[in-house]
Design a protein around this nucleic acid. Structure first.
Length: 172
DNA sequence: ACGATGATTGTCT
DNA sequence: GACAATCATCGTC
């Protein structure tokens, strides 16, 4: 999933016509202590084991965070999307992030979920799958990726275990 | 600019 | 009852 974390940089993440370019990701794997799949499968983290193309959405404190699950299915591994550069539906984002300066619209995992309207209802969904029930879904518009920018790598932030692993990637 | 801190809710032990 | 993949704010440098 390190490859996935790198590959997601520069791709467009869109939900209901609102989205932007992914500029920061972090990789997580069940064999390492900071991963929610560490310690086995539970009702909450079940979608972490669904394999590539699925979403794992969870809540922490008052925030919602979005992960793209990695292959193979049955193995708990995913990439946390930490930041976007807003590009699509800027008016809608401005409404949802009312009162905040533009640079704080999507510069954190919880903030970008607010901006795109991601909720726990998106947990376990498949990326880009047509909404059979009329509900908006999260989709990934594949593009040139990280070409045109430099990828910075370093330790993950906001965690208390496995702090040393350099599994955070940023596009600059 | 940077680091510490408190809020506060669901989930697992 | 303890913990947490965060956020916003406050205090210092």
């Amino acid at each position: 999933m390190l490859d996935l974390a790198r590959a997601l940089l520069g791709q467009r993440l869109v939900r209901g016509g609102v989205g932007g370019v992914i500029v920061e990701t972090e990789a997580y794997h069940q064999r390492e202590g900071a991963c929610h799949a560490h310690g086995g499968r539970t009702a909450r983290n079940a979608s972490l084991f669904l394999g590539g193309g699925h979403l794992y959405v969870y809540r922490i404190h008052q925030s919602t965070c979005l992960n793209v699950v990695a292959d193979p299915a049955g193995e708990g591994a995913a990439v946390l999307v930490r930041a976007l550069r807003p590009e699509l539906g800027r008016e809608e984002i401005a409404l949802r992030r009312a009162g905040r300066p533009e640079r704080e619209w999507t510069n954190g995992p919880g903030k970008l979920c607010l901006a795109l309207g991601v909720t726990l209802a998106d947990d376990g969904a498949r990326l880009g799958e047509d909404p059979a029930d009329g509900v908006e879904r999260v989709e990934l518009c594949l593009g040139p990726g990280a070409e045109g920018g430099r990828v910075l790598r370093g330790p993950r932030v906001g965690i208390s275990r496995a702090k040393a692993l350099p599994w955070r990637f940023r596009l600059v």
